[in-house]
Simulated scan of single mutants.
Amino acid sequence: MKFFAAILLASAAMPAMAATNLVSNPSFETGFSSWQQFGNTNFTGTTGSTLGQSPTDGVRQAYFGAVNNSGGIFQNIATVAGETYRVSFDMYAASGGQQFRADFAGQTLVNSSYSSGLGYSSFVYDIVASAANSQLRFRMQHNPSYYLLDNVRVEHLEPTDPVPEPATWAMLIAGFGLVGASLRRRTAVSA
């Protein structure tokens, strides 16, 4: 019985596993590898510190300064329809921007100009996927300066109150049966 109590305590003390980031090259450490560029890609690239801003994750960040026409990047992410995903990223906007738009799984997360500027800020959204493949897309236009992007994440969120599988129910019932049998045996020996 002490053995089962020790196993229960050990499993309760184990830390929860961190969610896996489904984005490849999320902090642009290898340029735009794993990302596809579209539209106006002039004045677009990756760098270390720029505009007085250091990357929020790693040693590189992406910058976007498309003039007159927007451009951006996207990546297709394997998802499960009906499951929830947490999308997060860090973004900086120098003043004067015309467009910053982020979309995931066909849903617009943010669509604004940030024309007065914005210091590096974290954006977080929980989205339900509608297909087995969801596109993460960033579209930007910033005539006089740049948007910076870093630390892009898409994480599958586990259900907070999952329904146990039949095998789990069977193990639970068998466990209660064994506990009951051992208690009955102990009572019979004591009498």
Results as ranks from 00 to 15, higher is better:
residue 142 H to S: 02
residue 179 V to H: 06
residue 159 P to T: 05
residue 162 P to M: 14
residue 162 P to R: 07
residue 174 A to N: 12
residue 176 F to Q: 11
residue 117 G to T: 03
residue 105 A to M: 02
residue 166 P to V: 06
residue 158 E to R: 05
residue 177 G to P: 07
residue 151 N to F: 06
residue 127 I to Y: 00
residue 125 Y to T: 07
residue 137 R to N: 04
residue 125 Y to M: 06
residue 153 R to K: 10
residue 164 P to T: 11
residue 102 A to F: 05
residue 147 Y to P: 04
residue 102 A to Q: 03
residue 179 V to Y: 05
residue 115 S to M: 07
residue 159 P to C: 04
residue 169 W to M: 11
residue 107 Q to M: 02
residue 112 S to D: 11
residue 109 L to T: 04
residue 175 G to Y: 07
residue 153 R to F: 10
residue 156 H to C: 11
residue 167 A to W: 03
residue 96 G to T: 07
residue 167 A to D: 11
residue 168 T to A: 15
residue 118 L to N: 04
residue 129 A to V: 08
residue 158 E to A: 12
residue 177 G to E: 10
residue 123 F to H: 09
residue 153 R to A: 15
residue 153 R to P: 08
residue 160 T to W: 10
residue 105 A to N: 09
residue 102 A to N: 03
residue 123 F to M: 10
residue 146 Y to D: 15
residue 106 G to V: 02
residue 171 M to H: 11
residue 107 Q to A: 02
residue 122 S to R: 11
residue 139 R to F: 04
residue 168 T to C: 07
residue 171 M to C: 11
residue 101 R to E: 13
residue 115 S to E: 05
residue 131 A to N: 03
residue 170 A to C: 12
residue 173 I to E: 08
residue 128 V to R: 00
residue 133 N to S: 15
residue 96 G to H: 00
residue 180 G to F: 10
residue 171 M to V: 15
residue 147 Y to V: 04
residue 155 E to Q: 09
residue 154 V to Q: 00
residue 133 N to F: 09
residue 115 S to H: 08
residue 153 R to M: 13
residue 155 E to A: 10
residue 143 N to K: 07
residue 171 M to G: 13
residue 150 D to Q: 08
residue 125 Y to K: 03
residue 103 D to V: 05
residue 100 F to C: 00
residue 134 S to A: 09
residue 125 Y to R: 08
residue 173 I to H: 06
residue 112 S to K: 10
residue 123 F to I: 13
residue 163 V to H: 13
residue 127 I to K: 00
residue 162 P to F: 09
residue 172 L to G: 12
residue 179 V to F: 10
residue 140 M to C: 08
residue 131 A to I: 09
residue 121 S to A: 06
residue 108 T to E: 08
residue 130 S to Y: 01
residue 134 S to C: 02
residue 169 W to P: 06
residue 163 V to E: 15
residue 178 L to H: 09
residue 118 L to Q: 08
residue 143 N to M: 12
residue 163 V to D: 13
residue 104 F to E: 01
residue 161 D to L: 13
residue 162 P to H: 09
residue 176 F to D: 14
residue 155 E to L: 12
residue 168 T to S: 09
residue 145 S to L: 12
residue 110 V to M: 08
residue 115 S to I: 10
residue 120 Y to K: 14
residue 126 D to T: 11
residue 151 N to I: 12
residue 110 V to P: 01
residue 96 G to C: 05
residue 131 A to Q: 04
residue 143 N to S: 12
residue 130 S to C: 03
residue 109 L to R: 03
residue 141 Q to F: 00
residue 165 E to K: 12
residue 119 G to T: 15
residue 120 Y to F: 15
residue 175 G to L: 11
residue 104 F to N: 04
residue 138 F to T: 08
residue 111 N to K: 05
residue 116 S to C: 14
residue 118 L to H: 03
residue 174 A to V: 13
residue 129 A to T: 06
residue 175 G to E: 05
residue 133 N to Y: 08
residue 101 R to Q: 14
residue 116 S to Q: 14
residue 169 W to C: 07
residue 130 S to K: 02
residue 119 G to N: 13
residue 142 H to N: 04
residue 156 H to D: 13
residue 124 V to L: 04
residue 123 F to Q: 09
residue 98 Q to F: 02
residue 127 I to D: 01
residue 141 Q to I: 00
residue 98 Q to V: 10
residue 107 Q to V: 09
residue 162 P to L: 12
residue 124 V to Y: 04
residue 164 P to F: 04
residue 119 G to Q: 15
residue 152 V to A: 01
residue 96 G to Q: 01
residue 131 A to S: 13
residue 115 S to V: 13
residue 175 G to M: 10
residue 158 E to V: 10
residue 103 D to A: 14
residue 98 Q to Y: 05
residue 180 G to Q: 14
